[in-house]
Design a protein around this nucleic acid. Sequence first.
RNA 1: GGAGAAGUGGCAGAGUGGUCGAAUGCACUGGUCUUGAAAACCAGCGUACCGCAAGGUACCGGGGGUUCGAAUCCCUCCUUCUCCGCCA
Length: 422
Amino acid sequence: MLEIQRIRNEEEAIIEGLKKRHFDARPIVEEVLSVDEQWRAKKGALEKTASQMNQISKQIGILFGQGKQEEANKAKAQTADLKAQESALKVEVDELDKKIINLMYQLPNVPNALVKSGGSELDNEIIEEFGEMPVFGFRALPHWEITDKFNLIDFELGVKITGAGFPVYKGKGAKLQRALISFFLDEADKAGYEEYIPPLVVNEASGYGTGQLPDKEGQMYYIQEDDLYLIPTAEVPLTNIYRNVMLPDENFSIKLTGFTPCFRREAGSYGKDVRGLNRLHQFDKVEIVRIEHPSNSDKALNEMIGHVKGLLEKLGLQYRVLRLCGGDTGFAASMTYDFEVYSAAQEKWLEVSSISRFDTFQSTRLKLRFKNTDKKSQLCHTLNGSALALPRIVAALLENHQTEEGVNIPEALHKFTGFEKI
RNA sequence: GGAGAAGUGGCAGAGUGGUCGAAUGCACUGGUCUUGAAAACCAGCGUACCGCAAGGUACCGGGGGUUCGAAUCCCUCCUUCUCCGCCA
């Protein structure tokens, strides 16, 4: 959520910035400001009335204390009008309050200066490419044929037990999964991220904290009976560790990591997009999260990019880095870098990681602040990224490291898998 | 799941309808004293919002209610503790 102060002070800059998302913010921003003005007027009136009420009440108390019953009762009679006024104003103020919040929830984050204007993925910028595109001297198999051939993942079995999008990993497939998780966590640990095992179900407040609610309500599995949500990413529980937190000074750089399964309803997805491991309802992911001083946000983002590059290189995967255009950048992010690996078998790029900075967009909702040198509270910056999401990495590994005989496991994984080939 | 108790400022802990944003102690900050430190003494010490300011409003687990007035009474939810039940 954008800060109301910022909307008041930088109206035009925000509207201009959001054009890069092909989002016309003017009607909303103008309404916010107009409602905000009404709110302030009503709020002022309400506080004035409350102040009068408080004074009279105090007087009544003193009069009763002095045993002056009559005068006290007389004073009581005066309050009826004020009280009616107060409760009417309160209702109005509450309504205006809700109106502003609802409007603010509709405003996405303002893209960073580096972000190009654009409406869809077609406008994303390719920032960097690494490695050689895979070339095979034989017919390369898509991963779902490889997993089938070597008995690594049983999609049908998942359908039987649960439904489509819930694969069953088995044998070397399961071991590869576990190895990747260990590898990613070890690498994050080496890079200074503290490991957490958070809950996989979160309450409504946490969903709002990181911005999944109300924007993406339909994307999360919801447990009605307990009013809880299955996490769509570890970002939610990890970042919410710091909800309503005031860091005591400016000297902080908080780095968290965690492995969790992630649950996504993916309503509306169909066809070849969901083939094999490309899009699942349940998948595993190691996430990295950072909470930073605003002045350190750039540096943190670059470190995260470097970290993911390192992972992909150690896995021997060729990749490219994209900076998403305004229209393709997520609602809460001000800038996002995607990592993609080319699948020769599927003849398309697979998104394997996404790193975003949110500036104060999440911390506004989270109330995540620090005390600056002037002893004032100031909002922190948050960032997060996948490091890495398993399914597409597994798909990329199987497809790009395949030979006519099987699949070569990258050396970095050997100590975790216990085998070098499939 | 059942029965009971409790949730107050950074911590501890008073406060059961009126001048309570809240005693007191500890911690913390500044000062006096001291060669320095400690001790002692003095002063200060929550957050948010509105306002140029003076100031005002709100906050005693969350939400709602009673009342002129609520930390205090009522309802409800949450959490913690004790006992019972169930259970990996």
